[in-house]
């Protein structure tokens, strides 16, 4: 199976120069290890089955050894700083993520927010796409054509979101709900989550409206609660081991609608932003652990 990511952590190679230290028990655990452990700790106190616990152990080990998401952060950084597009400008010099031109650090946990230049509340990916179109001159339709990672392809905006998200690691979610624009979109998002329709009469809340439920073995976070919303937004953007793909929350919302038996929501649309505003603001105050690893 190709999901196996750590292919050769233990390389039994004979080093010509120096013998390898086979066993080590350092007294103090390395900082990275501690951080990874902390990360894996569930934000919600709920009953966890053995499979979930095993996966969390695995995830902690993966993050410690090197989360592939970091590769996309590095690519995103390069894309952010390079002059590109028909207008030959960089996002670094033209794209305001809400905390001023040139500032990336801390912006991810403060989105969705209202952007006066666009007259819209936008989540991180939507804002980046907006900048790519308005500043760099890319065509919106082109960016929306293949917006999510597929078999052999990762869209540029995915790497860019991962880079921006990485610079909010260990910071607290702080969606500016005091802004009436944001509050309005939050309330609309709440209604989207409530909306039952389609052949199976499902809404987001059919599965994600109460605590402690499961579909098969999958725990379902209650996105209306702080703990549940935190579980839902943590780890995104995430490297999905099913298919080795880097995926964003824009993709995740679409996949929820698919399972809800709904039609397809527009990429970077008001509907997706409203849901993300509702969920992320409900997680306000929780610490973002950075781009993650998903099953």
């Amino acid at each position: 199976m190709r999901q196996t990511l750590i292919a050769a952590t233990a390389i039994a190679l004979a080093f010509a120069m120096q013998p390898v230290v086979a066993q080590d028990k350092p007294a103090a655990k390395p900082a990275a290890k501690m951080a990874a452990k902390k990360m894996a700790k569930p934000a919600v106190v709920e009953e966890k089955d053995a499979a979930t616990l095993e996966f969390e152990k695995f995830r902690a080990k993966m993050i410690e050894d090197g989360n592939p998401a970091e590769l996309f952060e590095a690519q995103g950084e390069e894309l952010w700083k390079t002059k590109r597009g028909p207008n030959n400008v960089s996002l670094a010099e033209t794209c305001d993520l809400g905390l001023g031109l040139g500032v990336v650090k801390g912006t991810y946990v403060q989105m969705p927010r209202y952007f006066a230049d666009a007259g819209k509340v936008m989540d991180a990916e939507r804002r980046i796409v907006w900048c790519m179109v308005e500043k760099q001159g890319f065509k919106a339709a082109d960016l929306a054509k293949k917006p999510f990672a597929a078999e052999t392809y990762t869209p540029e905006q995915t790497s860019l979101v991962t880079y921006v998200a990485g610079l909010s690691r260990d910071m607290k979610f702080a969606v500016p709900l005091k802004d009436p624009h944001v509050k309005e979109v939050y309330e609309i998002g709440k209604e989207v989550a409530n909306h039952r329709a389609g052949p199976y009469d499902f809404s987001c809340n059919t599965c994600h409206g109460v605590d402690g439920k499961r579909i098969r073995m999958q725990q379902l976070p209650n996105i209306s609660s702080k703990a549940g919303a935190t579980t839902a937004v943590l780890g995104w953007p995430g490297y999905r081991m099913t298919g080795n793909r880097m995926l964003t929350l824009q993709w995740r919302m679409g996949d929820c609608f698919r399972q809800q038996r709904f039609p397809q929501p527009g990429y970077a649309s008001d509907t997706v932003t409203s849901l993300l505003t509702f969920m992320t603001a409900n997680a306000n105050g929780s610490t973002y652990t950075g781009p993650g690893i998903k099953r």
Partner: peptide, 23 residues
């Protein structure tokens, strides 16, 4: 030179390699 390795298709996408070097 501390590692010289031959790899093939059994290794996953975006692989991780780890080892310890004395000295």
């Amino acid at each position: 030179l501390v590692v010289q390795s031959e790899t093939g298709t059994a290794i996953s996408t975006n692989p991780v390699f780890g080892f310890k070097v004395k000295g």
